[in-house]
């Protein structure tokens, strides 16, 4: 129980650190959001000094850095990241209201990635047909190398324009979900496939596998009864990491497919340097990352008895070294 609480405290620290990091990048690096705001409103910086001063006061950029940081952190703890510079709306609300369609695509993509990535790795290492194994295991490195914006456009060309099977754009209905999800799943599934295949190969070369074979076990028993469960451990860690990336990948897919969602909001916010919105997105992404990893970490001892009785925490790094 204490281990769980300690792990929870760690997660909160990471979230706080993510907020701090985004504050450092967004508010302390050179670049003046106020001038951007006035510039974008008037098509050139011709605002009066009073106007500038008023906006500066409104965004609190005249305070000393630590005071700014303190105020923003306090507000963020209440879910307030400030008002969007572009629209004047509440940044948190803007991001959260865009979340459902993004979650739908990301969730579907995660399922696709795990099923296909995992399936390719398992089948590629299991089959005795060398050509099939070569073919399957060459897919993940390929998938990692393809630019996802290009893959999305290719899919539109083939499935929407050539075959007319699926809608090219929009965010309504299940059919519109398919192409974006496939696009989003491709790099993620490729990484899962690559890591699981490598990990399976490593496990199959372990001495304990020889003992299982010496017992007279079939290939299937060796593969699924012994190697897979050991090999799944690093792959599981990976799922926690890449799932957070799905949210980021939606910046590309939602732009390509003109879908509503957090990705579109982010891309639009960056293009007008809308700092509050960008910060809200980053903290949200860190929240997803932290939550997923928390779940993975709590799941770990269930799968690996070696970790069950170790008091205190094992970081992901130590585990991958073990």
């Amino acid at each position: 129980m204490t281990a769980v609480i300690r792990r929870l405290a760690q997660a909160i620290v990471v979230l706080w650190a993510a907020f701090t990091l985004s504050f450092v990048i967004l508010y302390l690096l050179p670049g003046d959001a106020v001038l951007t705001k006035l510039g974008s409103a008037d098509g050139g910086i011709n605002a009066s000094p009073e106007q500038i001063a008023q906006v500066r006061a409104e965004y609190g950029v005249d305070d000393p850095v630590l005071v700014q940081y303190g105020k923003r952190l306090w507000a963020a703890l209440h879910g307030d990241f400030g008002r969007s510079i572009a629209t004047g709306d509440d940044a948190t609300h803007q991001v959260l209201s865009a979340l459902p369609p993004t979650l739908a695509v990301s969730g579907f993509a995660l399922v696709l990635a795990v099923v296909f990535g995992g399936g390719i790795a398992v089948l590629g290492t299991y089959t005795r047909a060398r050509w099939l194994s070569h073919l399957l295991l060459s897919l993940p490195p390929l998938g990692i190398s393809l630019p996802s914006f290009w893959v999305g456009l290719l899919l539109i060309q083939v499935f929407s324009f050539q075959l007319g099977l699926l809608p090219a754009l929009g965010s309504t209905g299940f059919a519109s979900l398919v192409l974006p999800s496939v696009t989003l799943a491709l790099p993620t599934g490729a990484i899962i496939g690559q890591v699981l295949a490598k990990s399976l190969r490593t496990q199959l070369a372990q001495p304990y596998v020889e003992i299982v074979r010496a017992k007279g076990a079939s290939r299937r028993r060796v593969h699924f009864g012994h190697a897979l469960r050991n090999a799944a451990l690093p792959a599981l860690t990976l799922v926690g990491v890449v799932a957070g990336n799905l949210l980021a990948g939606s910046v590309i897919t939602e732009t390509v497919f003109s879908r509503d969602g957090v990705g579109r909001v982010t891309a639009a916010a960056v293009s007008v340097q809308d700092i509050p919105v960008v910060q809200a997105v980053i903290v949200l992404a860190a929240f997803f990352f932290v939550t997923l990893n928390l779940v993975v970490d709590l799941l770990y001892p269930v799968l690996d008895p070696r970790l069950a009785r170790v008091p205190g925490e094992l970081t992901r790094r130590e585990r991958s070294h073990a």
Partner: peptide, 8 residues
Amino acid sequence: TVSLNPVR
């Protein structure tokens, strides 16, 4: 030390 499946 390495000849038994660690998770069973």
